[in-house]
Design a protein around this nucleic acid. Structure first.
Length: 768
DNA sequence: TAGGCTGTGGTTGCG
DNA sequence: CCACAGCCTA
């Protein structure tokens, strides 16, 4: 038996060595999922299977790359010929080769979300619909939902449920927008992200010769993060794996408890359908967690037990040494950021954590700002993930639009973006005329540029621009992508435009970003010449500009190499999936934020939020800190908030402290110090209110009978008050109005001279 | 034609 | 509060 198999436990090894027939691995957090997937591919290769017969579909490019690297370590450079990538990148590659069969140019454009939205915006405008009512983003997700469920425009119209939903949302013309959108994408030779899947499905479905070819090629199919696949993705897998005479070698790894993309169309039904469609299915459950210590694993189990629909499993860990979960009850979001960062400093000093061991997680990206401010104050290096991606920056998109137009002149989003940027005398009015002309004659903008009736000056400018692009097009097949791209960069005027703004910090960074695109193209051409696509067919390496563009559109920020290796990670809980850190801070654990306001309105939304919390908690290896604030800015308004119901779903034995505001004393002591259960119970003050009915175990202790909270209005400067936790004190001052009133109170024997309590939130009893 | 100003809307997010 | 779209003005 190969050496690497010795690194696996019994269940893992059984899964890895079952290489014939359908296999489902239910892999709990930290259970060695990546290792199983990697070794399984290695094992298949060791049986003498050619690497190009192995397909491995992952959720992110990063996961694919990591997997390839790890396989390579086991089996050597052969690993590079494995078809490992995301659904989108693998299918883009196949579609590029087969584009002619489905009526697309092989250099088709890929529309990203911004392109899609901007196209929808123009369609909505052309149709004279109200953009308020027909919110382009809402329409976009609608179309995405349709495509993910194989609903083409005619099927959409015939679907009573979809049509009724549109009527109820007062968007009855959604189907018409959808139809136009599809026509326009086709005319532009463009596919959006969903099309990469949908067209792949069409290709396999309607072209038996193509289907045979890829079924023959891919004898071993692997899917990572199976719980996050949607109906369409599953349908494609089904086409590839289920046919007469198929070996049905489909190996799927996932965890229903970590499904957090239902809002995007992912469906747990895929896991259930899997066993129906493939009756030979063998299922393995990986339940041992190698990542986290005991309290973290136990807390995670308790959280997920509150969900109704899930596959039964019990995650356990052999690691008993364990810190308890630390709670930070904070006054405001500013206070929260300060205390989280203070605690990070303390953890670094006391436990010798590196920055890279630490992550701050939050529900919404907007929460990152306050943490950034505090981290800067402490001079701690950090990196924020999410938000505006590199590839969404204006200067990057502008340059890419020039390149796209060169490769595919019918790409209307690219054309509209740069036809007059930098300014070259083609006004909005001119573009509108070209658009109207194109619409009237049902022809692409590129052709309409020649035939539209324009005033002489505008006409000249348009023809000049067209000639410039044509000069690049003629070179596209002959020259290297890099040479051509750098000429386009200069000749388009984009370089000069960016150079003229490099005086400011922002302008300089824009110039650098655009330059970075050229560096990336240079790197791409180098790499492509090193690695043939396919050793079997002898396909030549594709270093063309078109190939680069189809890759780059599918990249995200997470795929960029980092220059500073040791930084604190700031990201949304979603983005943290698949990662692990020694110390994790989950912040903003408040009702209406986590769980989000939105989730509470949708059926199943609460369960999905709970799974998200489960994912966040299980990122922590040793230290888990959860914070929440009584008051935070939301949409410019100061809003109060209650602790998240999810906090009450964890048994208090796993908490080091309960809402321990002001426990400066405690924080000076080792975190491993275990608070006595009695002390913990006593310190919980009735704020763990939970709307969930089935939580008797974690109901808060009632306050003493002689404690009657006074109305907030009764609290005024000078009066003596009692607080359940801090004891007696004197009110020094009161600021703010109504629900935002905050009192500064000096409590007897308190190490903090004055505490600021939000009156709507704090329970205070006036004593005189 | 470009920049400034006002109004509006605002989860989560892989490709 | 903050980002952005669309409108208006110089």
């Amino acid at each position: 038996m190969a050496h690497y198999l010795d690194e696996l436990n019994d269940v893992q090894r059984a899964a890895v060595t079952t290489i014939e027939g359908p296999v489902l691995v239910i892999a709990g957090p930290g259970s060695g999922k990546t290792r199983v997937l990697t070794y399984r591919v290695a094992y298949v290769l060791e049986q003498g299977i050619e690497p190009w017969r192995v397909l491995a579909l992952t959720f992110t490019n990063k996961a694919a790359r990591e997997m390839t690297e790890r396989i390579e370590r086991v089996v050597g450079p052969r690993a590079r010929y494995v078809w490992a990538g995301t659904f989108h990148s693998i299918f883009a590659r196949i579609l590029r080769a087969e584009a002619g069969k489905i009526g697309y140019p092989s250099s088709f454009s890929i529309y990203d979300t911004d392109d899609t939205v901007s196209l929808l915006r123009s369609i909505i405008k052309e149709m004279s619909l109200d953009p308020q009512q027909y919110n382009p983003n809402a329409i976009r997700s609608r179309i995405s939902l349709a495509k993910s469920n194989l609903l083409t425009p005619p099927l959409y119209r015939a679907n009573d449920q979809m049509m009724e939903q549109d009527r109820q949302a007062r968007r009855p013309f959604t189907a018409d927008i959808y139809e136009r959108y599809v026509t326009r994408c086709k005319r532009a030779g463009a596919m959006d992200f969903d099309d990469l899947l949908l067209q792949m499905h069409h290709l396999l479905r309607n072209h038996p010769d193509v289907a045979d070819k890829y079924r023959e090629r891919f004898r071993y199919l692997h899917v990572d993060e199976f719980q996050d696949t949607n109906f369409l993705q599953y349908a494609i897998l089904h086409l590839l794996a289920k046919y007469p005479g198929s070996p049905e070698n489909l190996f799927a790894v996932g965890d229903d408890a970590q499904s957090i993309y239902a809002f995007r169309g992912a469906t747990i039904d895929n896991i259930l359908d899997f066993s129906k469609d493939f009756p030979q299915l063998k299922t393995f459950k990986l339940e041992q967690n190698y990542r986290s210590t005991a309290h973290i694993v136990a807390a995670a189990n308790e959280i997920i037990a509150h969900n109704s629909r899930q596959l039964p499993k019990k995650i356990w860990t052999a690691r008993s040494d364990s810190h308890k979960i630390r709670l930070l009850r904070c006054m405001t979001d500013d206070d929260e950021a300060r205390r989280v960062v203070d605690l990070i400093v303390e953890q670094k000093n006391r436990l010798h954590l590196r920055n890279g061991d630490i992550a701050i997680l939050y529900r919404t990206n907007a929460q990152s700002r306050k943490f950034e401010e505090q981290l800067r104050r402490q001079n701690l290096p950090y990196r924020v993930f999410g938000g505006l991606s590199f590839y969404q920056r204006k200067e990057v998109k502008d340059l890419l639009a020039y390149l796209r137009l060169t490769v595919n002149p019918y790409d209307e989003e690219a054309l509209a973006r740069i036809i007059n940027y930098p300014a070259r005398g083609i006004s909005d009015a001119t573009l509108t005329k070209i658009r109207q002309h194109a619409a009237a004659n049902n022809q692409p903008l590129w052709d309409a540029m020649l035939t539209a009736d324009l005033p002489e000056r505008a006409r000249k400018a348009v023809l000049n621009f067209r000639a410039l692009v044509e000069s690049w097009q003629r070179r596209a097949h002959k020259e290297s992508a890099y040479q051509l791209a750098s000429d386009i960069y200069r000749q388009s005027g984009l370089l000069d435009e960016l150079k003229s703004e490099r005086g400011t910090e922002e302008g300089l960074s824009r110039l650098q970003n655009a330059n970075a695109v050229l560096d990336a193209i240079s790197e791409f051409t180098d790499n492509a010449s090193k690695l043939p696509l396919n050793e079997e067919s002898g396909e030549t390496p594709d270093a063309s500009l078109a190939a680069y563009l189809q890759t780059v559109t599918l990249l995200t920020d997470a795929d960029m190499a980092s220059d500073s290796p040791d930084y604190i990670t700031l990201m949304s809980a979603h983005a943290a999936k698949g990662l692990e850190f020694r110390s994790v801070f989950i912040t903003g654990m408040e009702e209406m934020l986590f769980p989000s306001f939105f989730a509470l309105e949708n059926p199943g939304g609460l369960d999905e939020e709970r799974r998200l919390f489960y994912v966040a908690v299980t990122r922590a290896k040793e230290l888990l800190t959860i914070s929440f604030a009584g008051v935070r800015y939301r949409n410019g308004r100061l809003a109060e908030s209650a602790p998240s119901r999810f906090l009450g779903e964890i048994d208090r034995e796993h908490y080091e402290n309960l809402g321990g505001i002001g426990s400066r004393r405690a924080s000076a002591e080792p975190i491993s110090r275990v608070a006595s259960p009695a002390a913990s119970r006593a310190s919980v003050s009735g704020n763990f209110s939970s709307p969930q009915p089935h939580q008797s175990r974690t109901q808060p202790t009632a306050p003493p009978a002689d404690f009657k909270p006074s109305p907030p209005e009764a609290v005024a400067p000078g009066v003596r008050v009692r607080h359940l936790k801090f004891g007696e004190g004197v009110v020094r001052s009161v600021e703010g109005a109504r629900e935002n009133r905050v009192a500064s109170i000096a409590f007897q024997g308190d190490e903090i001279p004055e505490r600021r309590l939000v009156l709507r939130f704090a329970k205070l009893m006036v004593l005189d």
